[in-house]
Write a protein that binds this DNA or RNA. Structure first.
Lengths: 118, 118
DNA sequence: ATTAGTAGTATACAAAAGGTTAGTGGTAAC
DNA sequence: GTTACCACTAACCTTTTGTATACTACTAAT
């Protein structure tokens, strides 16, 4: 096996799961929406107010994708009019806690580093 | 303090560091490039061959950004012509190991789950 | 009666990200 | 002598992502 092929093989053992992960939770908003739901947001407008800068159109699309991937459950309460819609995180979303923790830790560390450098 | 304001405050304590992290290492390619370099890739074309689907134009841009953020060092060897360029990961890139590990673990788990569901 | 809130969708547009193709100027292998 | 490798870059195009505005249809507060 050539050197290149060996590197490539080892690489892909790490690259492809990371690719799989980024495929579902990558992008600007997905993790943020999950965090917002985790922290107790349930209603559409509540989520939008919490996540700075997200538009209704994008939030709507993100919620749909997250539902498709099993992170979120959409519950419609027909008990009264107008309809009340509630979004719940599923237990599967909890499997992301390590990823979220690692990202939050690193983000905090990185910001501190930038502050000291200036 | 209202309920919404409280949720919002707690949320942002987690959301803003995650936002900071995604700002520098978010996007389709950054983490992949870092992994490739970590695993021993050093040369431009070698990296491009390893990361499936990346174009020279995009790789070039990603490497520049990574250099700017202190993850990568670009070293030009003028010893011979044509010039040989080497990319090295910096120790700062190692601070990402927890994030990478968490993502790779989750990606592996997620793929297994999808395989079983089908 | 007006205003705001609910949970979105439709439309149109702008910006960002990424892909494709071609090309540089040299060297080294077939 | 043709081809391929090296490390890119420029120009151009497409796709993705996001923004802004308006709208629905109903309720509750001012």
């Amino acid at each position: 096996m050539t050197k290149d092929a060996k590197i490539s093989e080892e690489c892909n053992a790490v690259l492809s799961p990371i690719g799989d992960a980024l495929y579902v939770i990558g992008g600007k908003w997905k993790l943020r929406v999950i965090v917002a739901l985790k922290e107790g947001c349930k209603r559409f407008n509540e989520i939008q107010r919490t996540i700075d800068g997200i538009s209704a159109r994008v939030l709507s699309a993100e919620l749909k994708e997250l539902e498709l991937n099993g992170f979120v459950k959409r519950i419609v309460h027909h008990t009264q009019t107008p309809v009340v819609v509630e979004y719940q995180i599923t237990p599967y979303a909890d499997t992301l806690s390590e990823v979220l923790q690692a990202l939050a830790n690193w983000g905090t560390m990185h910001r501190d580093k930038l502050r000291k450098e200036r």
